[in-house]
Simulated scan of single mutants.
Amino acid sequence: MPRPRAADFEDKRRQIRAAAALLFAQKGYDRTAIGDIARACAMSKPLVYHYVASKEDLLVAIIADHIEDLTQRVRRAARRATPDGRLRAVAQALLDGYRQTDALHKIHINELSRLPAEAQASLMAVERELVAIFSDALLAAVPELHGSPRLTPVTMSLFGMLNWHCMWFRADGPMSREAYADLATGLIVAGARDLAGGAGVLAAE
């Protein structure tokens, strides 16, 4: 008969994930060992393995939890916003999510490629809903993108602008996250509308 889980099993697993995330962000995934995570949690290595199968599984869980948290934030923002303001609202919600999870975001960007292709594919599947919310918001802002093969490239261009802001953004810098969300969405919308005005380029390609 399987041994029942302790009442604090999930709490311990969350503790391990939090410690691993901090170490992955500080030292990098490759330079962090399970022993480092065990010491950070004041646990033995065998006890850590009682809660997690491997370091790779830890990385997958950390990134998946991060994407799901961002998706929930963006989904709520999309539901509350008017169609005209939805793109700006979801962009601000995403950047606000990064404000509180910068370390997790850097792990997502820097360490995802270290995972096997199957694990990467599973995380990309989790991310698709987040991308779909942005795509729908972009369509509300620029209806001319309906049926255009450029919808995905334009959506991913905006996503890239927002995702990589962590490489240069500083909290004490000249621009707030909210202002950058306005700038990024404004550039994307203006560019898409400008293309749409060029003899129906968006829909015709």
Rank of each mutant, 00 (worst) to 15 (best):
A132T: 11
L187Q: 09
A184I: 04
H165E: 11
R114C: 08
A18C: 05
I67G: 04
A77R: 00
R114F: 06
R39N: 13
G200R: 08
K12V: 13
H165Q: 14
A78V: 04
M161L: 15
H50W: 11
E111M: 05
H105F: 04
E129P: 03
T101V: 09
V201N: 06
M161H: 07
A7Y: 08
L70F: 00
K27F: 05
L138Y: 04
A171G: 02
E10S: 15
L123K: 02
R80Y: 00
E144T: 03
D194S: 13
R73Y: 00
M175S: 06
P149N: 08
R75T: 10
R80I: 00
H105R: 14
G198W: 13
N110A: 13
L95W: 03
D11R: 15
V48W: 04
L94F: 15
A7H: 15
D11T: 14
L94K: 08
T185D: 02
A40G: 04
T152G: 12
E205T: 14
C166T: 14
L59Q: 08
M1S: 11
E111L: 06
Q72R: 15
A7V: 15
H66V: 00
I34T: 14
H108M: 11
D11W: 11
R80T: 02
K27L: 13
Y49S: 05
Q72V: 12
S113T: 14
Q15P: 08
Q26M: 07
L151Q: 05
S113P: 01
V52P: 02
P2H: 09
E56P: 03
A89S: 09
D69G: 12
S135R: 10
A38E: 01
A53V: 13
E178N: 07
H108W: 13
R31V: 01
L151W: 02
A119G: 06
G160I: 04
A137R: 01
L195T: 08
Y49K: 03
L145H: 04
V142T: 05
L94T: 01
A196M: 03
D96N: 12
L94S: 06
Q100N: 14
A25S: 11
A18T: 15
T101D: 11
R88S: 05
G200Y: 05
S122N: 11
K106R: 13
Q26W: 06
A117Y: 09
A203T: 11
A64D: 15
D36Y: 00
R76W: 02
A61K: 05
R128S: 13
A25N: 07
M175Y: 06
D69Q: 12
D182E: 14
L94P: 03
R79S: 12
H165S: 13
T82H: 03
P149D: 10
I109H: 07
E56F: 04
K27A: 10
L47I: 13
G35Y: 03
T82F: 01
D11L: 15
T152A: 15
I133H: 02
P83E: 02
S148C: 02
P153C: 08
G197F: 09
V60I: 14
A53K: 12
L104F: 07
R73G: 03
G191W: 07
M43L: 12
R76F: 02
